[in-house]
């Protein structure tokens, strides 16, 4: 398939997804004002790199993800794939979706309970005609399931989502996102709904796939520790602005912006056992001494 080989070439040459001066305003119903969800954000995601996007609820992280996925239309600014503005409809949009896919936060909501696991992976394969010649669609489904460590694939494929654990479901979601032969993944809090003991397994899986397939990953999270360990760069968002951006160790170990410091101080850290209790008690003691 011509389309497929062209994609192969693009993948080997890497490719870049670029967000340029992106602005998104949301209208508030019943009021004449607008809310600026993201304010002039620019960054470049290269193949083979992971960028972590961190910030509190409402900081605009998900709006960026939605803009990239074309689930919302940016008010201003551009998104470019391999240097060209992305297509917003028709065949161009279909090609774009073949390249850029998303893993959603909630694996309980993102899989259709009616359909077996195999179906979820078969659909993108059919829509994007992503089955290589000489392979049946079933073989490709099994290969994808095996690639996300869901084995034996022949056992898993006919099961329905409710028969799988949260971690397994998220693996299905990852396999589905990879099915079209994507080059870029947007992962919006991919492990926050999972049990802690399996989070790292899923993140490690994502990291391995990224290396094997030379994917560019936008990892959206509010967990700074995993952001540090699983990405090359961290972008810190605060109220729609990117307030700090840099290599991950640099941002975590040597934060510059006030907000990054606040965020770091708020992250749970078992090294500080009892510190909060002591601080609170000291406050009370100080207040009592004043009286």
């Amino acid at each position: 398939m011509a389309d497929d080989s062209a994609q192969q070439v693009r993948r080997e040459s890497g490719g870049v997804l670029e967000v340029r001066n992106l602005v998104k305003d949301y209208k508030v119903r019943g009021a004449h004002k607008k809310i600026r969800a993201i304010n002039d954000v620019s960054f470049t995601l290269e193949a083979g790199k992971t960028i972590a996007l961190v910030g509190e609820s409402g900081s605009g992280k998900s709006t960026i993800a939605k803009s990239i996925m074309q689930l919302v239309k940016p008010s201003e600014g551009q998104i470019l794939l391999d240097g060209k503005p992305i297509a917003r409809h028709g065949a161009g949009l279909r090609r774009y979706r073949k390249d850029v896919q998303m893993v959603f936060q909630d694996p309980f909501g993102s899989l259709n309970p009616f359909h077996p696991v195999g179906h979820h992976i078969e659909r993108p394969l059919r829509i994007h005609r992503a089955v290589p010649e000489g392979m049946t669609i079933e073989e490709k489904v099994h290969e994808l399931l095996e690639r996300v460590n869901l084995t034996p694939a022949a056992d898993i494929a006919p099961r329905r989502p409710h028969e799988l654990s949260g971690g397994q479901r998220q693996r299905v979601a990852i396999a589905r996102a990879l099915a079209p032969g994507s080059r870029f993944l947007v992962a919006d809090e991919p492990v926050s709904m999972l049990d802690v003991s399996i989070r790292l397994g899923v993140l490690n899986l994502l990291a391995r796939l990224q290396r094997q397939e030379n994917l560019g990953v936008l990892y959206i999270t509010h967990d700074l520790a995993t952001a540090r360990h699983f990405s090359d760069e961290i972008m810190v968002m605060y109220r729609g602005d990117v307030v700090e951006q840099g290599p991950s160790d640099e941002v975590i170990l040597n934060p510059q912006h006030e907000y990054t410091k606040t965020l770091l101080a708020a992250a749970p850290n078992p090294e500080r056992i009892g510190q909060m209790r002591d601080e609170v008690r000291a406050e009370f003691a100080a207040a009592a001494a004043k009286d």
């Binding site: 460590n149 971690g167 802690v196 003991s197 399996i198 790292l200 397994g201 899923v202 490690n204 899986l205 990291a207 391995r208 290396r211 700074l224 520790a225 995993t226 540090r228 360990h229 699983f230 975590i252 170990l253 770091l264 992250a267 850290n269 078992p270 090294e271």
Partner: peptide, 19 residues
């Protein structure tokens, strides 16, 4: 839980454990 500020320890990216 990967440590926020400490060493990477066992959390080398891609060192997959079978979960």
């Amino acid at each position: 839980f990967p440590s926020l500020t400490g060493e990477r320890g066992g959390f080398v990216r891609g060192e997959e454990e079978v979960a």
